[in-house]
Nucleic acid binder design. Structure first.
Lengths: 260, 260
DNA sequence: CAGTGGTCTAGACCACTTG
DNA sequence: AAGTGGTCTAGACCACTGC
């Protein structure tokens, strides 16, 4: 058996989807119909459809059916200092809103203590969890730690709006952000808030923001659905104009393991 | 049935893996053992393991067993102009090599013609496919189009080494790169070269490079395994120092649909 | 050879959506 | 009530690995 039946079926459907035989939003044949069409058992049909789901081409709704997924993506732009997310979204014709899920002072892990340079004797910070809604649909789960003095002083504003605009309004300028972009998979929490199955592909932006005095003030991660979001970056020869020689470049960002 | 059995089993194993009860590389109990341990059918055990595989926590080898995956990731740094990939890898203790899979002059699609500003009458470019090997293991599939004159003049060098260093050596300086980072899924080609199952999560860096005269010269995408690679970015308040006012920022990168 | 995972079947029961 | 997908079982046969 060179190629499994379920692959043959999912590949055939895949090509039909990619060549727009089935358009975005359109319903695929039911499992029963596919069983008859390909003369296979239900479990094989289900596996074929599961293949397409993991490839982000199909979404299924219990009791309704399987539908071709919308593969359009919303772009976050990292070219600006991430302060203008709302404007960025407006430019793409998307209404932006947010909901604070949690805001409280907590003791942090060793790695967060080191990243934010908190005193080892009292390694505390404010932990924020925010859910970003795009056109009313949950799109991004934002989990960040912020220095305790800032979290305390700005608590009211921080609960209502995004972190970076709040800091800017308070006169605290973010000079630079060190970030890692990576693929991750939905755990129970992300699965719940972002309305995806466990294990669904996500794109995670893990970052540390530094104020103009080079002090780290915010550390956290923004977790978005991998099938609906992407990041735009502009890379320049001389990132800040500090060094005009070739070969000199910004400090290497160290990959940080997550224990957020 | 509040939570499915397969989820209960995969979640239990997941916690054991994350808390290092099972270490990286260690073999999990066989399907038979898990069937006995949880008193479930084989199909349920298999589904539990499949959950862990899609989450990147486990890899399975036919005839051998299921093993805890290595979750260490290699970091590409976008802070430098991407010319020093080999140095970046060396710093992470990784031997870097590459293999040219394809190098030929082709007619390009409409979108590539527009991006590279090629004449509509003769929309041709050189298409390169390169496989990047890290410690001898395939890690990244790099598919790019380069202007026909450059491809022709530098063909010998381009087949032997990476595109950007070759251009630099020829005195062609890359001024900036517009890029999109996104999660994708393995198609047949990526699956073959990167040694992953169809549909496996990938991280794609789709880019257009501009020379100092603002002319687009290279366009393409670098496709890497999502479970093994991540991108580091430094975001600065004033990307190039051209504008020191707040609120002024670089041009918005337009998401480009792939037909590479 | 025994042990492992890979594919597939036929059939049962449940949960959700729609009319 | 009918149609959809979601979960689960018991059992068969095949393919690969390692002794």
């Amino acid at each position: 058996m060179p190629t499994p039946l379920h692959s043959l079926i999912s590949e055939k459907l895949r090509h039909q989807i990619l060549s727009n035989d089935y358009q975005a939003g359109q319903q695929l044949p039911s499992e029963h119909q596919l069983m008859a069409e390909f003369s296979v058992s239900r479990i094989t049909v289900r596996r074929a459809i599961a293949n397409l789901v993991t490839q982000g081409l199909v979404v299924v709704h219990q009791g309704k059916g399987a539908f071709v997924a919308d593969r359009q993506k919303v772009t976050y732009s990292l070219s600006s200092p991430l302060i203008f997310l709302e404007d960025d979204m407006a430019r793409q014709g998307i209404k932006f809103s947010m909901q604070t899920l949690l805001f409280e002072r907590v003791s942090v892990s060793d790695s967060v203590q080191q990243i934010l340079q908190l005193p080892a004797t009292q390694p505390q910070a404010y932990l924020q969890k925010k859910l970003l809604l795009l056109n009313g649909i949950p799109g991004c789960l934002d989990i960040t730690y912020i220095l305790p003095d800032l979290g305390h002083a700005l608590s009211k504003k921080l609960k209502q709006q995004m972190t970076f605009p709040t800091l800017e309004q308070a006169g605290i300028l973010i000079d630079r952000i060190e970030a890692i972009l990576e693929c991750t998979h939905a755990d129970a929490e992300a699965s719940q808030y972002l309305d995806v199955p466990l294990g669904h592909a996500l794109i995670t932006y893990r970052h540390t923001a530094y104020a103009t005095d080079n002090r780290p003030i915010v550390h956290g991660e923004s977790i978005s659905r991998g099938d609906r979001f992407c990041y735009a970056v502009n890379v320049f020869r001389n990132p800040v104009g500090h060094n005009s020689q070739m070969g000199v470049r910004a400090q290497h960002a160290v990959p940080q393991r997550s224990d957020i």
